[in-house]
Design a protein around this nucleic acid. Structure first.
Length: 434
DNA sequence: TCTGGGGTCCTAGGACCC
DNA sequence: TCTGGGGTCCTAGGACCC
C-alpha cells in the first residue's frame, strides 16, 4: 500500500503560519516579478481565480474581493517543506519526497486495519507540529494513492481517503475524466479518446499493449497501476540530473552587459545548488528568449551548450564558459525577456572514480595495483567505511548488466547516461546499497 | 503595461561496433 | 547476387509532472 501526503495550498498555508489573520481570508501567492498566480487559498479558488493566471487579468476581481496577495518566498517554503518531511519521516521510515509539497509513503509495515487511524493521527500531528494542513490518499499503487489524495481533498471530512480495488473504485473511475489521472494530460487524453477510451474506467479495462502503442510504456504502466498492479516504486532521494536557474526580467533588456550581470548571478546560484548536492557538472547550456507575448516585437530564442574538459563545480570557471556561450547567442536589436543557465552531465563528486588497466583514480588519488579484483576490494572497503554497506559490480558494461540482471531481474536497463570509456562508470551503475 | 520556474522520462532513428 | 545477429551510443523532440 502506498500513501500520498500533499500539503493543502502549500505556499498559501506557509504564509498563513506566519500570519494567522489570513486563515479565513482569500489569499494568493505570486510568481517572480509578481507576474502569475501560482498558489490560491480555497477562498481564492472559490472566486474563480485559476492556477497560473496572469495577475493583470484578475486585478479587478482581486481588489474587489480584498484578496491578499503575496510575492513568493521560496526560502520560507523550502524550510517549511523540510519541516513537514522530517515530521513525516518520524512516522514512516520509507518516504519519497516527490516535490516541495508532496511525499509518497510506503505503508507495507502498517497493519491494514489500522491504516486509516494511523493516517488520521499523522495528519493531525503534522498540523500540530508545523501548522501545515495536509491531505492523505492511500491506495495499492502510487497512481491510485495519487487519485485517493484527490478524493481526500474533495470528499473527505478527515482529510484521509483510502482506495481499494472494488466496485466502488469502478464507479469513481467512471465519473472522472482522463486528465484526473496522474500522468495523463490533454494531449494523451485526446489520443485515448480518438480510440474510444473516454474515462479512467475504460482505460483501466483496455488492452495495455494497445495503450503502449498509442502513448508509450508510460501509458501502459498507468493501465496496470489503475488495476492495482504496481509498476512504480518508491524512489529514494537522488541527486538532480540537471540544474536550471532562469528568470524573466521585469523590464525588457537589450544590452549585453545587463544580460551578463543576470547570467553571472544565475550561474552562481546554479553552482551553489550543484555544490550543495555534492556534485560536479560536465557541461552547461545557456538560453535566451525575447518576450513571446509581444507579438509585434521581433522574436528570437536560442540556446548553446559546451562540454567542459573536466568535471567542475567552480563558479568562476562556469561563468567564463557561460559568457562565451552568451557571446555566441547574443544578437543586438532584440528585446530580451529571459535568460537562463542549465548545468548538465551531473555526477556525484565522491563517485567519480575510474579504473583503467591497473590504475585506480579517485579524485586526485592515483594508485597502481597488480590485481584488478584487489583494486575493487580495496575500493569497496573504503566506500563501505564512508557510505555504509554496498555491493560492487565490476567488469565490462555487458558483464555489469548481466550481473545486475541476475540480482535485480530483467527490468534493469543500461541507460546511455551510464556510459563510460572505462570499466567502471556511474555510481548507480556499479554500486547498489544492499 | 502586465504573462513563472524547475524538473523527469520515453522514443525513434542513425551511426557505429563486433 | 546474396546480405546475420546482437548490441551500444547519441540526440532531438515530445510528452508529462509540481
Amino acid at each position: 500500500m502506498y500513501g500520498l501526503v500533499d500539503c493543502n495550498n502549500f505556499y498559501v498555508s506557509c504564509e498563513r503560519v506566519f500570519n494567522p489573520l489570513l486563515k479565513t481570508k482569500p489569499v494568493v501567492v505570486l510568481s517572480n516579478n509578481d507576474g502569475c498566480i501560482i498558489a490560491r487559498s480555497n477562498e481564492a479558488k472559490a472566486l474563480g481565480i485559476p492556477m497560473g493566471a496572469p495577475l493583470h487579468l484578475y486585478k479587478e476581481l482581486i481588489n474587489k474581493n480584498k484578496v491578499f496577495t503575496y510575492s513568493s518566498n521560496y526560502t520560507l517554503y523550502g524550510d517549511m517543506s523540510s519541516r513537514v518531511m522530517t515530521s513525516l519521516n518520524f512516522f514512516v521510515p520509507d518516504i519519497e519526497i516527490y516535490s516541495i509539497d508532496e511525499a509518497f509513503l510506503s505503508l507495507e509495515k502498517i497493519n491494514g486495519v489500522t491504516v486509516l487511524d494511523e493516517m488520521v493521527k499523522i495528519r493531525k500531528l503534522i498540523y500540530q507540529w508545523t501548522g501545515i494542513p495536509v491531505s492523505i490518499g492511500v491506495g495499492p499503487t502510487k497512481t491510485l494513492a495519487k487519485l485517493a489524495n484527490k478524493m481526500a481533498k474533495k470528499h473527505s471530512s478527515n482529510g484521509v481517503y483510502i482506495l481499494t480495488i472494488s466496485k466502488h473504485l469502478d464507479k469513481i473511475l467512471k465519473d472522472l475524466s482522463l486528465e484526473d489521472i496522474w500522468g495523463i494530460s490533454k494531449g494523451w487524453a485526446n489520443r485515448l479518446k480518438s480510440i474510444g477510451i473516454n474515462n479512467p474506467f475504460e482505460l483501466q479495462q483496455s488492452d495495455p499493449r494497445q495503450i503502449r502503442n498509442l502513448i508509450s510504456v508510460v501509458g501502459e504502466r498507468i493501465v496496470y497501476e489503475l488495476r492495482g498492479i504496481p509498476c512504480l516504486t518508491l524512489e529514494g532521494i537522488t541527486a538532480k540530473q540537471s540544474i536550471t536557474v532562469s528568470r524573466s526580467f521585469g523590464n525588457i533588456i537589450n544590452n549585453k552587459n545587463d544580460l551578463k550581470k543576470a547570467l553571472a548571478n544565475y550561474v552562481a546560484r546554479a553552482a551553489e545548488k550543484l555544490r550543495s548536492q555534492n556534485s560536479l557538472c560536465g557541461a552547461i547550456s545557456v538560453f535566451i528568449h525575447t518576450n513571446r507575448f509581444r507579438k509585434k516585437d521581433l522574436q528570437y530564442s536560442n540556446s548553446a551548450s559546451i562540454i567542459f574538459d573536466d568535471l567542475t563545480d567552480s563558479t568562476n570557471l562556469i561563468i567564463g564558459k557561460a559568457f562565451k556561450l552568451l557571446e555566441s547567442l547574443y544578437l543586438p536589436n532584440y528585446n530580451y525577456k529571459k535568460i537562463g543557465v542549465v548545468l548538465l552531465d551531473i555526477q556525484k563528486r565522491e563517485h567519480n572514480f575510474i579504473i583503467q588497466d591497473n590504475l585506480f583514480t579517485y579524485g586526485n588519488t592515483k594508485k597502481e595495483f597488480t590485481n584488478k579484483s584487489d583494486i575493487c576490494m580495496k575500493m569497496l572497503d573504503s566506500i563501505n567505511a564512508k557510505m555504509g554497506k554496498m555491493t560492487l559490480f565490476y567488469g565490462s558494461q555487458g558483464i555489469i548488466k548481466q550481473r545486475k540482471q541476475r540480482i535485480e531481474g530483467n527490468n534493469w536497463k543500461m541507460r546511455s547516461s551510464y556510459r563510460s570509456p572505462f570499466y567502471t562508470t556511474n555510481w548507480n551503475d556499479i554500486l547498489r546499497v544492499s
